[in-house]
Computed example of a mutant assay.
Amino acid sequence: MDVLERVGRIGAVDVELDHEPVPVGQVVTGSPATGSRALGSFDGHEVGVWEMTPGAMSDVEADEVFVVVSGRATVEFVETGAWLLLGPGDVVQLHAGDRTIWTVTETLRKVYLG
């Protein structure tokens, strides 16, 4: 039984996360750290909370939809040069294989379905 099934409600801003430094090969600037916690599943997809502290990192995305609950960042799509400005309440869809650069200016927390 997952956390969501057991309690039925979780405050996404209150979920405790253990942060780890971003691997050196992914750091673009600063000393960002990330933390995540799976909360359960929905229709075969994982639901969880993810957070990144200020700094910039490169990543390769998985298929995911998320909602920003706090913080500010930009996500640049390496292949196209397109970018998104993220803040609380934004809903975003990412696609598997997209190479991105996340630049966080205020610790960003999101709830994801992936």
Rank of each mutant, 00 (worst) to 15 (best):
D2R: 04
E5M: 10
R6M: 11
V7R: 04
V7N: 02
G8L: 05
R9F: 14
I10L: 13
I10M: 13
A12C: 13
D14V: 11
D14H: 13
D14I: 11
E16A: 06
E16K: 05
E16N: 03
L17F: 10
D18I: 06
D18N: 04
H19Y: 15
H19C: 09
H19P: 06
E20C: 04
P21K: 07
P21L: 05
P21N: 05
P21Q: 06
V22C: 07
V22W: 08
V24K: 13
V24W: 13
G25Y: 00
Q26M: 07
Q26G: 05
V27K: 01
V28M: 10
T29V: 13
G30V: 10
A33N: 10
A33K: 11
T34Q: 00
S36C: 03
A38S: 15
A38I: 11
A38T: 14
L39S: 01
L39N: 03
G40D: 13
G40W: 15
S41D: 08
F42A: 14
D43K: 02
G44N: 07
G44V: 08
G44K: 08
H45A: 10
H45Q: 13
H45G: 09
E46F: 08
V47Q: 06
G48A: 01
G48H: 00
G48V: 00
V49Q: 07
M52R: 05
M52L: 07
T53S: 04
T53P: 04
T53M: 02
P54H: 14
G55L: 11
G55P: 12
G55N: 14
A56N: 09
M57F: 11
M57D: 10
D59M: 02
V60K: 10
E61T: 15
E61A: 15
E61W: 14
E61F: 13
A62W: 07
A62C: 09
D63L: 08
D63P: 06
E64I: 09
E64P: 09
V65F: 00
V65P: 00
F66L: 08
V67P: 00
V67N: 02
V67M: 05
V69Q: 02
G71F: 13
G71E: 13
R72W: 03
R72L: 04
R72P: 01
A73V: 14
A73P: 12
T74R: 05
T74F: 00
V75A: 13
V75D: 09
V75F: 07
V75I: 15
V75M: 14
E76T: 12
E76Y: 09
F77L: 12
V78K: 11
E79M: 02
T80R: 00
T80Q: 03
T80L: 00
T80F: 02
G81C: 07
W83A: 15
L85I: 08
P88W: 15
G89P: 03
D90N: 10
D90V: 07
V91N: 09
V91P: 08
V92N: 06
V92Y: 03
Q93C: 09
L94N: 04
A96S: 15
G97F: 03
T100A: 05
I101Y: 01
V104P: 11
T105Q: 01
T105L: 02
E106Y: 09
L108D: 01
L108V: 02
L108A: 01
V111D: 02
Y112S: 03
Y112W: 13
L113H: 14
L113K: 12
G114P: 03
G114T: 04
G114I: 04
